[in-house]
Structures are given as C-alpha cells and as structure tokens.
C-alpha cells in the first residue's frame, strides 16, 4: 500500500472502493455481503457445526453431541429436521423454515410476540426447544388462512383496526385464536386478562380486545356469555 492520504470513498453516493484484496465494493455490494454473513451465521445456528477445515477451526467444534433429529408437522406440512439442541422453536421457524410470522420481541417469554399453537395450545415459541417437538403439531400465523380466505380472527383484526406497527400482531392473532378456543371471551375484562401475555407497544389494546370479541362472536355462533 502507498502512503498517500486519499479522501475516503463516499459509498453513500455511489463511490466505489478498492479493498486490499482487489475486490471492488459498492454500497449495494457492502449491504449484500453483510446480509449474506448474517444469514450464514443464523443458519449455522440450526445446522450441525461445520466440519473443521483446519487445526484452528477444529477448536470451535462443540465437544458434545448436540444434534437432534425430529419429525414435526408445521401448518399441516410434515418436516424431518436436524437441529442443534439449543435451537428454539422460534428460531427454527424464522431462521430455518423462513416462517417469519412469529417475532422475536424479547426472547425470554415476556412479550408474547412469538406466540404459536403447539398441539392446539398457545405457547411462547421462545420457550420451546425444537428438540422437544418430536411428533408434535405446530400452527403459526402463516397457517391460519385457507387459501385466499383469511381466518375470522385475521379478518376481525383488520375490521377492528387492531394493529399499528404490526410487530406484535402475529402473536396477538395466535393468542386470540387460543383465547377464543379456550372460551375466555365472556367479557371485555376477561378478554384483556386472558390476552395479557401479549404486549403491544403501540397500545392498540382496545382495538385488539374488540377484534377478539368480534371474532369470538363469529366463531362461537351468536352472543357469547357475558359474565
């Protein structure tokens, strides 16, 4: 390299940049390579540790046998999957199966944005290790609609304006499906209590509760019992 002081390339405005290894970088290229690296890291989380190619990388192979094979049905589709033991259902859905409806809001069971149905019951997918899923059934928000027909809960959320930024919405919808099936929609107070495991930073709570009530009336056929 020469000792010239050069003006740094203005990547934001289309300048190109010569890397030391001869690769020409543009802004778009920088974003692409960053995304590819992140994806590669994420995928590594759900695959076996890569085979070592050198003595140095051999030290990064975990010394425990931590691969698990599971057969699990997701949205009606049977999957045979190999996962590392520490992968959660949330990461399996998002990173390996590209079912990004479930959201990672907190990754510690406090926000509900990751809510899915597991064997018909609503759960936080960040609390479920994928390894435990053998023989189980998972339903995510992607599995609610029938073809082009939205689920009544989805339609109610639209009709009742029950989302703003939309980040909590997948979890709210899955939780609402569970709440209705459990029969906990007898009153606005009961709905709010039984939906309290889903946080909404935009505070769409009144509209969410209205959507749950609306969908409940449709799904349970007529007036629900008010307590």
């Amino acid at each position: 390299m020469t000792d010239e002081r050069k003006t740094p390339p203005d990547l934001a405005n289309g300048d190109e940049c010569q890397r030391g290894d001869g690769v020409t970088m543009t802004r778009r290229g920088l974003f692409r390579s960053t995304f590819a690296a992140a994806t590669s890291v994420a995928l590594n989380g759900v695959q076996a540790a890569p085979a070592p190619t050198s003595a140095e990388s051999r030290s990064h192979v975990p010394r425990v046998n931590n691969l698990v094979h599971i057969s699990v049905t997701i949205n009606g589709v049977a999957h045979r999957i190999e996962v590392r033991s520490d992968v959660t259902l949330l990461d399996l859905l998002r990173e390996q199966l590209q079912l990004t409806g479930a959201k990672k809001g907190c990754n510690r069971g406090e926000c509900g944005a990751c809510t899915v149905m597991l064997d018909g019951r609503r759960v936080n997918s960040c609390f479920v290790l994928a390894a435990t899923l053998e023989g189980r059934r998972v339903t995510t928000v992607e599995g609610l609609a029938t073809g082009d027909s939205l689920h009544p809960v989805q339609r109610a959320f639209i009709k009742c304006d029950a989302f703003q930024c939309g980040f909590c919405t997948s979890g709210q919808i899955m939780s609402a499906v569970g709440c209705i099936e459990e029969g906990h929609t007898g009153s606005n107070v009961e709905i709010r209590e039984w939906m309290s495991g889903n946080l909404c930073r935009c505070s769409a709570y009144p509209q969410i509760a209205a959507a749950v009530e609306t969908a409940s009336v449709e799904l349970q056929g007529g007036a629900h019992g008010a307590v």
């Binding site: 069971g109 509900g112 809510t115 597991l118 019951r121 609503r122 759960v123 936080n124 609390f127 479920v128 939780s175 569970g178 709440c179 459990e182 906990h184 039984w194 939906m195 309290s196 495991g197 889903n198």
Partner: peptide, 8 residues
C-alpha cells in the same frame, strides 16, 4: 404469568 406460559 400468562396464558401462554401456563400452557407450558
């Protein structure tokens, strides 16, 4: 907790 947590 919450309904989701109590289901697990």
């Amino acid at each position: 907790a919450s309904a989701q947590i109590r289901n697990l």
